[in-house]
Amino acid sequence: MNTDHPTPSTTDADLLVGLPLVDEEASRRLHARLVARAAAEGILDVAYRTIDTPVGALLLAATEQGLVTVAYPRQDHDRVLASLAERISPRILNAPARLDPVARELDEYFTGRRRAFDVALDLRLSSGFRRDVLAHLPEIPYGSTATYGSLARVVGNPKAARAVGTACATNPLPVVVPCHRVVRSDGTAGGYVGGPEAKNALLTLEAAA
């Protein structure tokens, strides 16, 4: 009785025999057609893509109304997408072209060529006081900072500095809606959804302009 076994390399080679070669360009074209068809048939509610930036890979997601999410790697992109499926719609598709305008503006921002964003925003993931806070964040000038307390006064609730901090911590659109410009009363950076390194990097970028 022959008890010899095939070597791992031989087995791997045997398994690969007959497998078709993957045409990446054809796969991209097919995916593009699927995206176009989904959009045409009204079954694409959330488009997403990721982009590389100096503060890590950012997940961008948008609805027909506008950009709805910017997420850092530490937030777990898969978890973010699952949350979008639950809170907005399960009809989510990787559709990079739909996010091209956002990606272009972010590239301009990170290379020092843009100070404010012009893309449409969908703020449905925030409501009430938190949404009021987000609405005032773009009023903080590029390269400047405001304290949680001062922002609370602007929103109309001077005693709500902690609630302002919570609104910033749950901002679904960091970078584009600049919660990184809000700092503690002693001038230290404070918390940030992207982590302290990302917040300091954004503040340093803007201060250098």
Rank of each mutant, 00 (worst) to 15 (best):
R98I: 15
S144P: 03
D100G: 03
H136F: 11
D52F: 08
P174I: 00
G128H: 07
P138L: 03
A169M: 11
A38I: 00
E139I: 02
L93C: 05
L60Y: 12
E197C: 04
E25I: 08
A38C: 00
R37C: 07
A163K: 02
R74E: 15
L84C: 03
E64R: 14
N200A: 14
A207Q: 14
A97S: 12
H77V: 07
G190Y: 04
G187M: 11
L173V: 05
S89N: 04
L15N: 12
V102Y: 08
H77Q: 06
T7G: 15
T10R: 15
L202M: 10
L125K: 04
P54R: 04
D186C: 01
V119I: 06
L137F: 10
V176D: 05
I51Q: 01
R113D: 08
P54D: 12
S185Q: 14
E139W: 10
L203G: 02
V17P: 00
G149S: 13
H31N: 11
A85T: 06
T53N: 00
V177N: 08
G42I: 01
V102T: 15
R114V: 04
R91Y: 13
L93G: 04
T10V: 11
L67I: 03
N94K: 06
N157K: 12
C168I: 11
I140L: 09
E206T: 00
P158N: 07
A103F: 01
A82Q: 12
R184F: 00
A152D: 07
I43H: 10
P8Q: 12
R29A: 15
A135Q: 14
D132V: 02
E206M: 07
A167T: 01
A97C: 02
A146M: 15
E197I: 10
D12I: 08
V102S: 04
V35Y: 09
L84G: 01
T111Q: 08
V183H: 02
V17A: 08
T63Y: 02
L30P: 02
L60R: 04
D186V: 01
D76S: 12
D76Q: 10
R49T: 15
P141D: 13
I43N: 08
